[in-house]
């Protein structure tokens, strides 16, 4: 997703009951894991942190984010999924999605940090998050039960507070 030279007009929307199935279908195609319905419900409840990208009114990419309450009373934004359909990669749609979602996080002063799990060998994704100001943290052993390698790297970004 490096080139970024070509632009594709995209519009954005939030996820709601009526188009939730589209988000599920999109993620089922992009990711090797099937996410539980609970995860989608939680993301849908978090309003505009979850963003859908449409090209010509057709869903081509999405970021699903949910808020996690911390004991301190503050909250963290957890990026559950961020994916763009293969033919539409290289048009900076993923970056736009992440920026919009993080922009939504900044609106909420309670959210102090955004973080994400990435499979350790997914260098492209790791570089992508680093470009957007995320820093690598600890590695979680055996995070993915059905994938190899099963380990996940946590990347996080402090949000201005």
């Amino acid at each position: 997703m490096a080139s970024g030279k070509r632009e594709l007009p995209v519009s954005f929307d939030i996820v709601r009951e009526k188009n939730l199935e589209q988000l599920k279908l999109l993620n089922n195609v992009i990711f090797p894991i099937k996410f539980p319905d609970d995860m989608y419900r939680q993301c849908m409840a978090c309003g505009d942190l979850t963003q859908l990208a449409f090209h010509n009114d057709i869903l081509v990419g999405a970021i699903a984010v949910r808020c996690e309450k911390q004991p301190s009373g503050k909250a963290k934004a957890y990026i559950a999924t961020l994916g763009v359909l293969a033919p539409y990669r290289g048009f900076a749609i993923g970056s736009k999605l992440l920026e919009r979602s993080l922009g939504g996080c900044l609106q909420d002063p309670n959210i102090e940090e955004a973080y994400v799990h990435v499979q350790v060998d997914n260098e492209e994704a790791i570089r992508f998050y680093q470009r957007h100001g995320f820093t690598a943290g600890e590695t979680v052993k055996d995070y993915y039960k059905k994938l190899t390698p099963p380990d996940a790297l946590i990347l996080s970004k402090k949000l201005a507070a």
């Binding site: 589209q22 279908l25 999109l26 195609v29 057709i58 869903l59 081509v60 359909l85 033919p87």
Partner: peptide, 12 residues
């Protein structure tokens, strides 16, 4: 043809 298209953009 439809299956090829579905593999490309299943959200249409």
């Amino acid at each position: 043809a439809i299956d090829e298209a579905l593999a490309h953009t299943p959200t249409l």
